[in-house]
Design a binder for these strands. Structure first.
Lengths: 206, 206
DNA sequence: GCCGGAGTTGACCGACCGGTCTGTTTCTGC
DNA sequence: GCAGAAACAGACCGGTCGGTCAACTCCGGC
């Protein structure tokens, strides 16, 4: 049935996200993927031409899910500096949820997979760039607001948004190593100061 | 001969570091490891009980190499704030060197491998914690100096050092995604401001 | 001068890898 | 109610995986 087929594909993507988050790409096999999804090999390759194609789909869905949460924050009525800090709650919350069900902090699919496949598989590389671009938009929106209200000097929005993403990723790494999701939030406290220093040292026109 | 045996082990660790940096742990096989090292399977398992034991050895050597460079910077006569920024030159330089020989930015062995194996293999997890502790020492030394000279309010040294490491890791991720090692240096500019914000919001006694 | 052990070799192991193929079932459009 | 496509099943493929093993070389100590 068609409805079931869609959910089969979805199930595959969701379990893939779970497993790849836990052990990366190379250490998770197609058999395991199928078993965990409750489907057969043939069904797997009916929906995806390859294992790495599933990885791309997982990255896309994963990045869209987070982008939606970032958008909600960006469009909320809170003060811009508050919204900036709240962005960090998104990965922090996801990490806490994961930890409560799996027992350990999980990290970020984008950050984690980038080494393993970014170089080897161009499609994955593009998916990762797409994810960062998606996340940069709501974050850039808030940075815009910070500049407009004078909290921040004029600054390259895209570069600043990526700095924020980098701060998150750094925090996620600490969270993973120490198995403590609250480390992500700590990084949030310095984000605005960090951007301010960047704005004063590197004008956007440079 | 004994001399050759030591260098065989060293070769194995060095080529493992190269290969793991390029494609992670799971996607690099023992056969490839042996072929690239110019040795045989038996020799591999003469020196290491398992593939992941080699990973641990590679992490240890890798972290020691960087720790030595951090130490040099920490003990140099430069102003403390300059030393803080110079820490970021270490991964930036390594990334540039790698890019010039391999054509792409490589990332960091510790940051990259932590997802793949941190949970699965406790030995690797400990090696990663060891690496971060090693790096925290010279960085903490400079943070101490910043506090002593009044540039920074009193702050939890260990936590602050890990923040700096997190900033580096975030920068390394950007460098990898954009294949541009200079992204690491950009993160350095805001490091001091970031720590200052942290110091004022979270006193060390908390 | 030979003995023991470190170093090294490469064939070999079963398990599992990603992926293919041939069906069978189930839904949909007509 | 049937034709055709989409969904699903699962046996099967060659190859590679991490790891083992028995044999051999080489060298320092006695």
């Amino acid at each position: 049935m068609r409805a079931a087929s869609i959910s089969t594909r979805d199930t595959l993507i969701d379990t893939a996200t779970e497993l790849f988050l836990g052990r990366g790409f190379g250490l998770v096999g197609t058999n395991e993927l199928c078993a965990a999804s409750g489907i057969n090999k043939g069904t797997f390759y009916h929906f995806f031409p390859s294992k790495s194609a599933l990885m791309v789909a997982a990255i896309d869905r994963y990045s869209e899910r987070f982008a939606a949460e970032f958008n909600d924050i960006a469009l909320s009525g809170a003060p811009a500096s508050t919204r900036l800090e709240r962005f960090f709650d998104v990965p922090a919350k996801a990490n806490r949820a994961w930890k409560s069900t799996h027992g350990f902090a999980q990290g970020c699919l984008i950050g984690n997979i980038s080494l393993e496949l970014a170089v080897v598989d161009p499609d994955v590389q593009h998916a990762i760039k797409r994810a960062i671009a998606r996340w940069s938009m709501p974050i850039g929106h808030v940075i815009n607001a910070l500049v407009a209200e004078g909290t921040l000097q004029d600054i390259d929005r895209a570069a600043a948004a990526e700095i924020v993403i980098a701060l998150m990723q750094g925090g996620i790494l600490l969270a993973k190593v120490h198995n403590d999701p609250s480390r992500i939030t700590i990084l949030a406290h310095g984000a605005l100061s960090h951007l301010r220093a960047l704005a004063s040292s590197r004008p956007p026109a440079s």
